[in-house]
């Protein structure tokens, strides 16, 4: 669970870095070259399979753990506990379920189109590239999609708030000096990743 989660965080960082290229380059050239690289490089293709494996593993383990946890308390309390703990840590299965539902839509919106569909092509230098950028920009001109993505990414942020430090704790990597730092990194990752991704549809909608 923890290892798959950490791997998925590393994927999100790469994904976000490439997507942000769209905001810093109006010609979309940088983004299209990066998307082309991610779509064709053989090493990346292998990691794509590893990534899907990681996602499936993370989901399956999450569901198995949750079922075991529900079974461990067959009778619920009349007055539910409200201990002073991190709020989002109690709702990982719920935020996870929302993320998964939107992930399916997201894959249909972009990944499957890029992988199996026909995209327009653009010339960069002497080479022809698929115009992934225009696909993204066209999508985010539609207001309902922008709202959907903002909501989805907020849930991703909530999920990430209890991710990095929790994974370290599960792996037994705690230390009186570094564990407080890990909490800070966790919160920063949640804000930066969710915030960074949210910026993309919002900026595209406003500027286009």
């Amino acid at each position: 669970m923890a290892l798959a989660g950490l791997f998925l965080i590393s994927f999100l960082v790469v994904h976000l870095s490439i997507n942000l290229l769209l905001l810093f380059d109006d010609s979309r050239e940088l983004f299209n070259i990066a998307a082309h690289f991610m779509g064709t490089n053989p090493v990346i293709q292998v990691f794509q399979i590893v990534l899907f494996g990681g996602i499936i593993l993370h989901i399956l383990l999450g569901i198995i753990l949750q079922i075991q946890n529900w079974l461990a308390r067959p009778t619920r309390y009349k007055v539910e506990g409200y201990s002073h703990t991190s709020f989002f840590s109690k709702f990982m299965i719920h935020t996870g379920a929302v993320i998964l539902a939107f992930l399916v839509i997201h894959l249909f919106n972009f990944f499957f189109k890029a992988k199996f569909g026909e995209l327009e092509t653009v010339m960069i230098g002497n080479d022809s590239y698929e115009d992934m950028g225009i696909l993204v920009i066209e999508k985010f001109k539609e207001f309902p999609y922008v709202i959907m993505y903002v909501v989805w990414l907020l849930f991703l942020g909530f999920h990430l708030d209890h991710a990095f430090h929790s994974a370290l704790q599960s792996l037994g990597l705690n230390h009186s000096k570094y564990t407080p730092v890990a909490f800070g990194i966790s919160r920063a990752l949640a804000i930066l990743i969710a915030g960074g991704f949210i910026l993309i549809p919002v900026v595209i909608y406003i500027t286009q």
């Binding site: 753990l65 461990a72 002073h84 990982m92």
Partner: peptide, 15 residues
């Protein structure tokens, strides 16, 4: 024994 799994919420420590 059938106890649940730890999801690092920290409620145990608080209580």
């Amino acid at each position: 024994q059938g106890f649940g799994n730890c999801t690092n919420t920290g409620a145990c420590e608080a209580e």
